[in-house]
Design a binder for these strands. Sequence first.
DNA 1: TGGTAATCGAGACGGTACGTCATGTCTTCCC
DNA 2: GGGAAGACATGACGTACCGTCTCGATTACCA
Lengths: 212, 212, 212, 212
Amino acid sequence: MTTQRKAPDAARRNETARRAILTAALDLAGEVGYARLSIEGIAARAGAGKQTIYRWWPSKGAVLFDALLMLSEGQGDQPADLPDTGDLEADLKTVLRATVDELNDPRYSEPMRALAVEILLDPALAADFAERLDEPVRELKRRRLSRAQAAGQLAADADLDVAVDLIWGPLRTRWLYREGPLTTAFADTVVETALNGLRPGASSRPTSPTPT
Amino acid sequence: MTTQRKAPDAARRNETARRAILTAALDLAGEVGYARLSIEGIAARAGAGKQTIYRWWPSKGAVLFDALLMLSEGQGDQPADLPDTGDLEADLKTVLRATVDELNDPRYSEPMRALAVEILLDPALAADFAERLDEPVRELKRRRLSRAQAAGQLAADADLDVAVDLIWGPLRTRWLYREGPLTTAFADTVVETALNGLRPGASSRPTSPTPT
Amino acid sequence: MTTQRKAPDAARRNETARRAILTAALDLAGEVGYARLSIEGIAARAGAGKQTIYRWWPSKGAVLFDALLMLSEGQGDQPADLPDTGDLEADLKTVLRATVDELNDPRYSEPMRALAVEILLDPALAADFAERLDEPVRELKRRRLSRAQAAGQLAADADLDVAVDLIWGPLRTRWLYREGPLTTAFADTVVETALNGLRPGASSRPTSPTPT
Amino acid sequence: MTTQRKAPDAARRNETARRAILTAALDLAGEVGYARLSIEGIAARAGAGKQTIYRWWPSKGAVLFDALLMLSEGQGDQPADLPDTGDLEADLKTVLRATVDELNDPRYSEPMRALAVEILLDPALAADFAERLDEPVRELKRRRLSRAQAAGQLAADADLDVAVDLIWGPLRTRWLYREGPLTTAFADTVVETALNGLRPGASSRPTSPTPT
DNA sequence: TGGTAATCGAGACGGTACGTCATGTCTTCCC
DNA sequence: GGGAAGACATGACGTACCGTCTCGATTACCA
């Protein structure tokens, strides 16, 4: 067992209170921003006692994490996989444009930023996040790239983890640091550049599967 | 007047106190981590009054920012430019390896992480940071790439801003989110992949300056 | 009906739980003192649910009250009356010395002090206490004095209630306020002074029953 | 030094805040009773921060203590001594009647009861109270009795401490336990009985200074 | 003798208050 | 005037209990 203290009895958990707390966390993150997001405030907004939060979550970040999970699941999107039309470049652009839209929507963006801060501050939460959200998603990405590799659309010796960072990293960095506007054009350029590389002659290479 | 409140007279500023405060901020960030870094703690450690901090800096993040600036300047490194041996790939690897070392050193890494958090929280600080530190450094990077482009080592139509994100972004993301160990091997692979792209046949293209 | 809420069915009451709760209350009062005595703690120590306490007692003070009643009854002392050897002064000294011993024993003293606090705080409990414990005991005292009065050992016009306060009050006050050590010597002096009065010549008056 | 932690600098103390806190404590004790008297409530009512209370007082009881001291001093009554007209009995009745009036006035009575509770709970406060308030007052009482003793109005061998308890104890006990109404008649009877004793023949002894 | 209704241990819940910490403003006194 | 020191109002922290509530699992009465 890894539980600390007296483990609460999950069977008796009040689902209504749980949802109220997660919803309040999302709403408040969107309304007042992370800096002013407090557990006290979440409890008050949710009509819950503070102890109910402390009983079930170890930190403010963990609440935000669950809140964002609820948000994704609520959409029922649960993408079993990334799109695969056979055209890798087009598929990646589709995905990154969707991400751009999400990051430009404060309803998603603000809680995500709040969660990002908590992750930066708290290595334990970072590990939890990596395991439960980041790694599964990364696995989806790797899988899509792997299929492209099998189809000869990616270099056979490409390190797929680096590939994922190359494709998805720039967007995340620009968003976090507010380094510039997040546009679909930027997303497209990143995909193209990551695929073709920076060296000359790259863009002349075929974009679609090499004909034999 | 455009100044808010009573503008302090910079001429009378006590340089000793300033350095003590910045040093204390760096030390404490390294020792207790960002989450427990407080202005009160900095003042106490520096033997300074809190008001002295509030008089000269608008926020904890601003103190950290100045502290990191002092740290870079103190090294006297002030690199007017990135290395340019003519071999772009080698030069980029040199720079990224140095960055890896820095990010693995808590003395640099912890204050940087602390500053990153403040930037995420505070758009005003983000803008300040972008203008005074990020943009100048980015300009150095763009300049080096621009020279490579002129030498025909980069595609003529490459978007250099995207290129910078592609090369430096993955390292920063992996560090911030603690997604994996930061190694020089990772740095090398990122440089190679960014230059050659992910498509097949890329790695067969020349790595050194094109012979005439 | 005059009952508030849903009157619990006393017939079904679990005597084991009742005793466990009262015992736990006494033990905890002795161990941690009143200030840290909590219903939650009593329930935990007794292996009882909190509701079992709230079902049968209206307040923490009521639990303590019953606990002290159990303690006295448990002794089987139930003194139908105060000692009456014919020598009033000696009898009073016997009783007060016994009280001194009791007040010096933390096992009795601490719960009593806890109950005293509750009585000070809660007029309803005070009334209950007065009716069920204080008044019966006071009646015993008054009865003993009354007999002495009939025997001519007390002034015929003495107000027996005031007499009780005069004899038993100083001990209680000194104990409550911790104004000084509780000794049998103090008890003796109080009895003598109360009987003889403070005026000169008092001590020369006969101490034993007046000879006819 | 007996100070714990970092001793606050009394010289910088804000007298306005101090008075506001003490006044709020008295008012609230009178309004909501002790059981609902909270430090948080006092701070809120006083427009003060909780820390300001915790900085200067170790406990709620200590605040009440100071508040009552302020109340007495505010009256400017500061009786250097108890009345001494030469008639001990009359003087004692005067004093006890005044006490009866005080105890029947909720403005005094409620804070006093609150303080009494704190004293019961907290031996440290009890000691402080004994030293700073109870003992000085007791000394005044002893002094008055001592003068009476010198004048031959009290038995030469009377224990003056016991005498004080005998005279003032019954009133205090009856008040604390709400054992009965506090009337001036009760005060008078207590004085008479304490002076004359309970034995027969006592009341025939002279009440005024012995004639020569 | 099996149904059923209340008690029981357990503990989650919405709350209130605790005592501590840090915030940013202020005031005081020294240089 | 700047600076060290630190008191102040504010507000969040995480904890302890409050008194109410719901949950099976015993009981113990009653049909």
